[in-house]
């Protein structure tokens, strides 16, 4: 019997291969990001750049809404094609299916972010260079956090008839607390120290991720076998 983590990696790898062949979600996400950046640039740029605090919010709002395109189909496509039964009847723990999807969501978002973050930095003249390791850590933890919430939201809306409509109703409220932390941390990285120590905010973000992952993984068997 395979280990839970081995199965999770196999599921993530399978989804990444499928995505590289279909390219549908990645393309939609990239297109949305590009249009959003363009729209913001017309609305907010003055004297060659935008205010750094606005830029921090803009970056994460774009990533947050990009998740709509990336996370919603994570379980919906498996549910619609019937392949979810293959995962549900394999001798692997239910959490492995969830973790596999979180890893896939993270990689999918990561691929788009690799292009998005430098574009935003160059176009809007605000820099993450003040603290590169922390910037990378925030991007990794933040994207994982959104992926953890998005994957669970996608699983929760599976039984619903209006899946695409219901997804934002689950995803938005659960991801908002993480989003606020991410904006606040990024603002401090760009602007410099604020009232609240940055590491405290980062620890809260990390705790949020761990809570989301463990809570979702521990109840995920209900989503697989209602």
């Amino acid at each position: 019997m395979t280990s839970g983590l081995g199965a999770a990696l196999a599921i993530a790898k399978k989804d990444i291969i499928i995505q590289l062949r279909k390219k549908f979600e990645a393309f939609s996400m990239f297109l949305f990001a590009l249009i959003a950046v363009l729209a913001y640039s017309f609305a907010l740029v003055s004297q060659g750049s935008i205010p750094a605090d606005v830029g921090s919010a803009m970056l994460w709002v774009i990533i947050f809404f990009m998740g709509m395109f990336g996370f919603a189909p994570i379980f919906l496509s498996e549910s619609e094609t019937g392949t979810l039964r293959g995962l549900a009847t394999a001798p692997i723990p239910a959490w492995a299916v969830y973790v596999g999807k979180v890893i896939y969501g993270f990689v999918l978002m990561g691929i788009v972010e690799v292009f998005l973050v430098p574009i935003i930095s160059i176009l809007f003249g605000f820099s993450f260079l003040n603290d590169i390791p922390l910037t990378v850590a925030v991007l990794v933890v933040g994207t994982l956090d959104l992926s953890a919430v998005g994957s669970m939201a996608s699983a929760l809306v599976m039984p619903s008839e209006a899946k695409a409509t219901v997804f934002p109703l689950v995803y938005f409220p659960t991801a908002t607390s993480g989003l606020i932390l991410l904006i606040e941390i990024t603002k401090i990285i760009v602007l410099g120290p604020g009232v609240v120590p940055i590491m405290l905010l980062f620890e809260i973000l990390l705790a949020h991720l761990i809570a989301m992952l463990t809570l979702s993984a521990s109840v995920f068997h209900f989503a697989l076998s209602p």
């Binding site: 399978k14 291969i17 499928i18 062949r21 279909k22 094609t81 019937g82 392949t83 039964r85 293959g86 009847t89």
Partner: peptide, 12 residues
Amino acid sequence: LVGDKTLLYDEL
């Protein structure tokens, strides 16, 4: 398990 629908991924 074999059902009326296959459990195969079309893109693979």
